[in-house]
């Protein structure tokens, strides 16, 4: 029971991390019509900036905003220099140009920080674990990730549903041309939105830093999972991104936790572990295939 509870919390934690990435990706796609492969790079930039500042100053409280700022600035620059010119292009051009950006960012990071992964200490005030409901001890840091992720999800909902910016975002997603025709400075809106998406990706990277190793290539690993989330949830839908992220986080975590045990009852230990690792890595893609068979537009499509 306590293992199940712990794994469920792990699933939620992976889910909210994926949500932060998927929300940015799906908003940017839904409104600007741009598919941004370099979204994972922003996640990596957030994590690296955080790791570098934490190593330099020893302060998590400085490193946290530094990571966010680095991702945000990188995102705004990316929009201003490259992505802005891709709005009118087809998806193919967008994919290739942002693929070029990934090559650049990955190699630049290798030059700056080397190939060795960086490790970041969990800050003291978030270290340790607490009992939850008398059933399971759970690390405070992971709970904090869940809390921040959920708070961001609520904040994002309020931003989109209740503010003027959110109104423009919704209007832009429904009919871009009409919003432009009504005199909204759409360029500024796009840049702001891209920056917001970048900061969400950076936030995910910053929070993942202390529990994963910070290394080149971390962005693409998570990017492809994010794509799965977006496809499952429905492209352009933030609500779908939330549902999809939790589903993917949960399925992935549960398969990794329980599949080796199940398979070990059927075959020898090392074989079972290898097969289980493979199957659980494939699990979320199977989930995506099933969702597609039933609902090709995703679970919560953006329009209709």
């Amino acid at each position: 029971m306590s293992l199940l509870m712990e794994q469920a919390l792990n699933g939620v934690q992976l889910g909210v991390t994926l949500f932060l990435l998927a929300a940015g990706l799906t908003l940017i796609f839904g409104i600007m019509g741009v598919i941004n492969l370099a979204h994972g790079s922003l996640y990596m930039i957030g994590a690296y900036a955080m790791a570098a500042v934490a190593a330099g100053t020893g302060s998590f409280l400085l490193a946290f905003p530094a990571g966010l700022a680095a991702a945000g600035i990188a995102g705004v620059l990316m929009e201003y220099l490259v992505v802005r010119r891709l709005y009118a292009r087809d998806h193919l051009d967008q994919v290739l140009a942002t693929f070029g950006l990934i090559l650049f960012f990955n190699q630049l990071t290798t030059i700056l920080f080397g190939r060795q992964p960086l490790f970041v200490q969990i800050p003291d005030f978030l270290n340790g674990s607490v009992m939850i409901g008398g059933i399971v001890r759970y690390p405070v840091y992971r709970l904090a990730i869940i809390a921040v992720g959920l708070a961001t999800a609520i904040g994002l909902y309020l931003l989109i549903a209740r503010t003027r910016l959110g109104m423009l975002i919704r209007a832009g997603a429904t009919n871009r041309e009409m919003v432009r025709a009504l005199g909204v400075d759409i360029r500024l809106l796009y840049t702001v939105l891209f920056g917001v998406g970048a900061m969400l990706a950076g936030l995910a990277g910053v929070m993942a830093g202390p529990i994963l190793s910070v290394q080149v290539g971390m962005g693409e690993q998570v990017l492809i999972l994010t794509f799965v989330v977006v496809v499952i949830g429905g492209v352009g839908s933030v609500r779908g991104a939330f549902i999809g992220a939790l589903a993917v986080g949960m399925v992935d975590t549960m398969l990794r936790a329980y599949l080796p045990g199940l398979l070990r009852q059927l075959m020898a230990g090392p074989d079972a572990d290898a097969l289980a690792a493979g199957l659980s890595a494939m699990g979320v893609y199977m989930l995506m295939a099933i969702v597609l068979l039933v609902k090709p537009q995703g679970l919560a499509p953006a329009h209709g």
Partner: peptide, 16 residues
């Protein structure tokens, strides 16, 4: 050794 740092921007420029 870090040729991708050149190839990436070349690619972006070519597409743009």
């Amino acid at each position: 050794e870090h040729w991708q740092v050149i190839l990436g921007p070349l690619l972006v420029l070519m597409i743009l």
